[in-house]
Design a protein around this nucleic acid. Structure first.
Lengths: 188, 188
DNA sequence: CAACTAAATGACTGTTGGGTCATTTAAGTG
DNA sequence: CACTTAAATGACCCAACAGTCATTTAGTTG
């Protein structure tokens, strides 16, 4: 992951990978068919389990839809702004053109499922009268968009920041604006 | 642009570029030092002029901050969801690791300036009492985040859509949620 | 310890593709 | 048309690197 995320797929040499793993180049080929297989194995390493857990957690949640949404966004937000693993989605984004099957995999297993979860929360909020009647498929993406921005910012532009950017503050503001924006009451 | 955006920098051969331009490989080297120079020339082609124009337009705008914000977001949104040029930012994102100086250029010339414009609108709205007192640097990014999502969606995931996604609807919803979320009044 | 098996190595090979330049083609000039 | 200059070409060269495999090293068993 370190190698690929630093230079991209094409510019990473098998020797780089091997040295990074403290083994010889030939050894890599005992475990992987070729360079592409190394990359794919890496890219499939799954956040799927985590999503599964979230999905179940939500089904049995009793609080308001707003609370649930707040919870989810905080969670994803924390991941996006602190985890080292964000270079993985970043990497996939960068190499998307050369690995269409991986893109399809990620789209189905993570994006569609993730958006589905968000949508179901929003739909629930609308039905219960908490949220205004807005298109859930759009609102779900609005919930997620700032996370994507954080991932891209951290992995691409952060190195040129004079002062470290306050990701927590962004997420906090996002929650305030979003919840006020979709709630029916005069205040959120 | 067609070549690079299809396969990325490394996987694009000079012959591809040449054939695409209906000239011979050697001819490319009459106009560009090497492959990197071709890429950089492409990546520098500037939306800077457009930004300049926007900046001036805003200085003399008389309407409410909300109207101004709506205008800007609609504009950027239309660009993000219809222009073919989005493959350019997409490309830069993908190749960021290999061209740090280009990233710095884009960050300074486009991102910082663009965010600056948004921030100034928001600050104006806060001072005039239209908007709530939220951190402008965060709100500016919230304004922009869905555009980024659109760009990435279109250039990476759209090909797997069963039905074409309604980008206009997303932008419309974004405006509704955002303006209601940051306005002081009970309604936006 | 001898005999055997499994794992790891890295020198080597073949291919790919960036970059060069001798040659050809086209344009300009008196 | 003869001659000069500029532009374009693509066969060729060579460095880089993915992938191979004969050899070495480490581990296991009786």
């Amino acid at each position: 992951m370190a190698c690929f995320s630093k230079k991209g797929f094409a510019a990473t040499r098998m020797e780089d990978i091997a040295r990074s793993a403290k083994i010889a180049k030939g050894t890599v080929y005992l475990y992987f068919e070729n360079k592409e297989a190394v990359f794919k194995a890496l890219a499939r390493s799954s956040a799927g389990a985590r999503l599964q857990a979230i999905q179940e957690h939500i089904a049995q949640h009793k609080g308001s839809a707003a609370d649930l949404l707040r919870l989810m966004i905080s969670n994803i937000g924390e991941f996006a702004s602190t985890s080292e693993s964000v270079i993985l989605p970043r990497l996939l984004l960068a190499e998307a053109g050369n690995f269409p099957d991986l893109v399809k995999f990620w789209r189905q297993e993570l994006i569609d499922r993730g958006l589905g979860i968000l949508q179901s929360i929003i739909r629930r909020g609308i039905e219960s009268g908490e949220f205004r009647d807005l298109p859930p498929e759009h609102v779900a993406r609005l919930c997620f968009a700032p996370m994507l921005l954080i991932v891209i910012w951290r992995t691409t532009f952060a190195k040129f920041d004079k002062a470290p950017y306050d990701y927590e503050g962004l997420i906090e503001t996002h929650l305030q604006v979003l919840l006020r924006g979709i709630s029916v009451g005069g205040d959120a």
